[in-house]
Nucleic acid binder design. Structure first.
Lengths: 234, 234
DNA sequence: GAATCGACCTTTGTGTGCAATTTTCCCGGT
DNA sequence: ACCGGGAAAATTGCACACAAAGGTCGATTC
């Protein structure tokens, strides 16, 4: 079904790209998963050529790691990369907020409100909940009409999903919905500084609240790998 | 020397990518130029497959436009995109400056000083002058050790070259060198706010000083094409 | 019995061929 | 002289084939 619907836009490699991206963001493919060109192509009904193209795109977006002669895997950002990524996100979303403050049209406000409502409604489903939370930010970015800003925010939000999938705690994104509402309120009221501060807090709370703990075996490996890398080991 | 270092590592598609990127940034290939897979492959001694991969990467970086069934061309950003791009750049470079302020090592300071000296020395050669001016910013970004930040600044700086190539006046980047020195001084002194302000001014002056006027035939065409697009014409 | 070497099998790297689409340009009509 | 119309040439879209690199598992040896 995906093949029939997705094709229309143009180039089928785009369709493959979207399919894989969606699969990754939905955590159907979890970080570190192998992405063999063959199987994917067979499953999606296209040749390796197109899969390859899609993988290159995804690697350029930072969603997959592409190691020479070793194939593609879903990206597995380190915790350090994660924190840096949120720093970058903050810088860009600050611009988003500054650009939008006091300039939202009625239509845009409606769209955002509806989206927040949808977020509220899907609190239970962990997967879609994360996706909707991210889409709020991309929606905001979209409204700036700044192409590069949009692109980068999209990328960073997507990769944030990966980070949260790896290091996030189960119920980390719950409070986010109310914060989204507050941000929207300030944007509508034109309280720029307040909105920026809220957005900063919003993103910061994700990093500190959701990203820090989780003393599982996964973390042990990460810590070790960091030390190993520092010593030039495998 | 850059070519020797970059190539050998692995994949030849990477080499093609670098070659094309370099050619574009040096304005050997000017914005809007056609990039036929065949000719490029023949000229570089590789097959279309590899050229294709490089073009996909470049399009993902925003350096080439890749239209379905119509082939690749060197990107031709509009003036509007240009201004937005510099807005985004500002947001990111602000983070760069904030991250680096007061934390530069002696080595890093030396590298930057040397670079500024090189900029000073090559004032005459328009092409390299622009390149070095850009590299100052990428150098700064590099020192943050923030992967995503580095990547985006690199991209934006590269695309800025395109913008300046299209809309910049001949001697627009002259004063920049002294401003670079000032920024470095403030970074070393740890005057964060001052450094941010300077960087803001630095980038802003590029947009207002270099990007605005230029009433040449090129602009006429651009204006017309904008109206044509609005009317659905060629 | 454990370690090492090697043949096999899987997966990626790259070139090439063919179909489809776009562009060019030549030609006839108005 | 100008404007379609259509065939030919050029270019991209896509798949497949072959070569090379990596990984695995078993056999051989100490």
């Amino acid at each position: 079904m995906a093949s029939k619907v997705g094709d229309s836009g143009r180039g089928r490699s785009q369709a493959v790209h979207r399919a894989l991206k969606r699969a990754i963001l939905d955590q159907a493919l979890s970080p570190g998963a192998k992405l063999p060109e063959d199987s994917i192509g067979e499953r999606l009904g296209v040749s390796r050529t197109l899969v390859r193209e899609a993988l290159v795109r995804l690697s350029e977006e930072g969603l997959v790691d592409l190691r020479p002669n070793k194939g593609a895997t879903v990206a597995r950002p380190t915790l350090e990369e994660g924190r840096n990524l949120f720093l970058t996100r903050m810088a860009l979303e600050r611009l988003v907020v500054e650009t939008l403050s006091g300039k939202l049209t009625r239509e845009q406000i409606d769209v955002l409100s509806a989206h927040i409502a949808a977020e509220e409604a899907s609190k239970q489903e962990h997967a879609t909940s994360i996706r909707l939370a991210g889409e709020f930010h991309t929606l905001l970015a979209q409204m700036t009409n700044n192409a590069s800003l949009i692109r980068y925010v999209n990328e960073l939000v997507a990769r944030s999903s990966l980070i949260l999938a790896l290091y996030g705690r189960p119920h980390s994104s719950e409070c986010a919905v109310s914060e989204h509402q507050e941000i929207l309120d300030d944007l509508v009221a034109g309280k720029t500084d307040q909105a920026v501060k809220l957005m900063a807090h919003h993103l910061d709370s994700i990093t500190t609240r959701a990203l820090l703990p989780k003393e599982e075996d996964r973390n042990i490996k990460d810590v070790l790998s960091a030390y190993a890398a520092a010593e030039g080991l495998a």
